[in-house]
Amino acid sequence: MNPVTDLPLWAAWLIAFFLLLGAGLTLIGSFGLFRLPGFYDRIHAPTLGTSWGTAGIVIASVIYFSVTESQLVLHPLLIGVFVTVTTPVTLILLSRAALYRDRAENNPDVPSLQLLENTSQESGSKTDSVTVHESIGTAKE
């Protein structure tokens, strides 16, 4: 804890700002995860913590270790890059799985495959994005 006492004042203010920004945004995101009504609303909320929440805390960590070790320390940025890359992948997989489950039990809250099929048949057999998406969806089943 001793390097803290000779931390310059500007570094302390910067670290405090970025730490509180990151932690506050993460708290808001988790509060949204707790409060929002439906699953597809809820899946947006924690991304607040994994985007700017992580960025704020990582920037604070970079500033702190760069000042105390008096050299540029960039390895906390690795966590930021890793989280930024992996979060969309996991959330896309999770939301596709949730959509698949909702459609399998004919939940009226999500657009069904039947509905998409009918609209694409009415509008002729042109291969717009909806019909391509549709054919991928049926091929998977």
Binding site: V4, L9, I15
Partner: peptide, 9 residues
């Protein structure tokens, strides 16, 4: 002073 800011943040 900086230690107090750091500790509380």
């Amino acid at each position: 002073m900086s230690a107090i800011i750091f500790f509380w943040s």
